[in-house]
Design a protein around this nucleic acid. Structure first.
Length: 352
DNA sequence: AAATCGGGGCT
DNA sequence: AGCCCAGATTT
């Protein structure tokens, strides 16, 4: 049993230095420009396990299309998914809409982290973030950035537990350091520090406004803290079929209750078409081979042209297989990689 | 505690 | 190829 991480410095001195640095150095992010409850909730959902740079264009487009809780609550499945297309973790979009509906349903929306915690898709981090930023609730949020910053500040050289255990470990310290006069700004400042200065690789300790409080900085161990549990990777090969009949393209749509990619379209796997992926006919020409990483899987996907013409009427829609008009492809949601590959395969060959 | 959910960017 | 990212939920 190891002692809990503790700060060997004056919390108010830390807060003041961090506050001043943030005031002068924070990035002008769109959800900070015109802060409000709705913008805060939307941005925090998009930012779950997703980088700021990735979220930026999605956020701006989303706010133009669905500017408030009311328009989001009334949004159709199709439009919802289309706006989220390529962002990943698609359950977030449905949860976000459910938050909007619940927010409207309630007579008095919550103003504390504990209250927000009851909404779907809102865990410990997002509850604290929304409540502190939009409602001024004094709750400290602990995300990956905060864990890294606090681990280095305290010189936490031991391996960290996985999952939410690391956040739980540092929650008491985060609570102690929180600026209760402006918790939203303080929370964003710690995360901003982690994202831009106290980075995972190549931390910029020389530029850090709180380096005088940092044990890792003092011992020169910042780059090797925190120690995170290793993740095992696994490689896979997936054979997919390019099946085009005139201006129709065969796609597979995941079931609405599917665990992943619910309602999203992808190119069908060989199995989905009743083909043995190891025994494709010689005439099944390999069109492209792509590699992608999904969580712990490294997946090689091969797209083969189907050897024979398939009668559109012979494929049942209830199996999730759908014939899409290639001119209507932009109206449906595909997974990010498949969106790109389909465009690539439909593009006319380059001249020369 | 571990697995799962997607994807992109960087080393 | 590995690692991480403004995590949450299920098993």
């Amino acid at each position: 049993m190891t002692a809990a991480p503790e700060a060997a410095f004056d919390p108010e001195a830390f807060r003041a230095a961090l506050r001043e640095w943030y005031r002068n150095n924070h990035r002008p992010l769109p959800w900070r420009a015109k802060p409000g409850l709705y913008a805060t909730v939307v941005s925090e959902f998009m930012l779950q396990q997703t980088r700021v740079e990735t979220v930026l264009p999605y956020f701006e487009r989303w706010m133009r299309a669905l500017p408030d809780f009311e328009s989001l609550a009334a949004c159709s499945d199709e439009r919802l998914l289309k706006l989220w297309e390529g962002l990943g973790y698609y359950r977030r979009a449905k949860n976000l809409r459910e938050v909007a509906r619940e927010w409207i349903r309630r007579h008095e929306p919550p103003r504390t982290a504990t209250g927000w915690r009851e909404f779907p898709g809102i865990g410990p981090y997002t509850a604290a973030a929304v409540a502190s930023i939009a409602c001024g609730d004094p709750s400290a949020c602990v995300d990956g950035n905060v864990v890294r910053v606090l681990a280095r500040l305290t010189g936490w050289a031991e391996p960290l537990p996985g999952g939410g255990a690391a956040a739980k470990l540092f929650q008491p310290l985060a609570d102690k350091l929180l600026d209760r006069d402006d918790p939203g700004t303080h929370n964003q400042a710690v995360m901003e520090l982690g994202a831009t200065v106290c980075r995972r690789q190549k931390p910029l300790c020389l530029l850090c406004p709180v380096n005088r409080f940092c044990r890792a900085r003092a011992s020169g161990t910042a780059a090797s803290i925190p120690r995170l549990p290793l993740k095992k990777t696994e490689t896979r090969l997936v054979i997919r079929i390019w099946c085009r009949n005139g201006n129709r393209l065969l796609l597979h749509r995941a079931q609405p209750d599917a665990g992943r990619l619910a309602n999203l379209h992808e190119l069908p796997t060989a199995e989905a078409l009743g083909l043995d992926p190891r025994k494709l006919p010689e005439t099944a020409r390999l069109l492209i081979r792509k590699k992608r990483a999904i969580t712990r899987f490294i997946i090689t996907e091969e797209i083969h042209e189907h050897p024979v013409q398939i009668d559109p009427r012979s494929v049942k829609a209830d199996a999730g297989l759908v014939w899409m008009n290639v001119n209507d492809l932009e109206t449906v949601a595909l997974s990010g990689p498949h969106r790109r590959w389909v465009r690539e395969l439909l593009a006319p060959a380059k001249p020369g």
